[in-house]
């Protein structure tokens, strides 16, 4: 099987995406934690108020996007190691991609709709 037919590439893009998304989460999470702690104690109203500023919603959505990219890339690594039938592996990766794309839209709806 040729590299082209198996969908295999050199993997540098995935390697970089995995680290860039990790870095984005590692930077965003402590900022949000400090922001939340600064507004403690938080009841329901306080928790909701945290998400009112546009910058916070954008930051939260970016975090979710980084998380989904990170999860999808990581799952691919795991699938390559344990699912050796190419068609099944690609199908599983595709289904996770669909689900995660849905999750991104869902996150936007949660952040803009409910808050």
């Amino acid at each position: 099987m040729t590299a082209r037919a198996s969908g295999a590439r050199r993997g540098l893009g995935a390697w970089l995406a995995q680290r860039a998304s990790a870095l984005a989460m590692a930077l965003l999470a402590p900022v949000f934690l400090a922001y939340a702690v600064a507004h403690a104690p938080l009841g329901y109203a306080g928790w909701r108020a945290l998400f009112q500023p546009l910058a916070v919603r954008i930051g939260a959505l970016l975090f979710v996007a980084a998380l989904l990219i990170h999860a999808w890339t990581g799952l691919k690594e795991i699938l390559i190691d344990y699912v050796h039938r190419l068609g099944l592996r690609l199908a599983l990766h595709f289904l996770f991609g669909l689900a995660y794309a849905g999750c991104l839209v869902w996150a936007a709806d949660i952040l803009w709709g409910a808050a």
């Binding site: 928790w47 799952l75 949660i110």
Partner: peptide
């Protein structure tokens, strides 16, 4: 690291559901 990553990846919808409940 791999096991925790797999668990978190599978739980993404549950975590989003929790976020939704917390704000709704």
């Amino acid at each position: 690291h791999r096991a925790s990553g797999a668990l978190l990846a599978l739980l993404v919808p549950c975590l989003l559901y929790a976020l939704m409940l917390s704000l709704r």
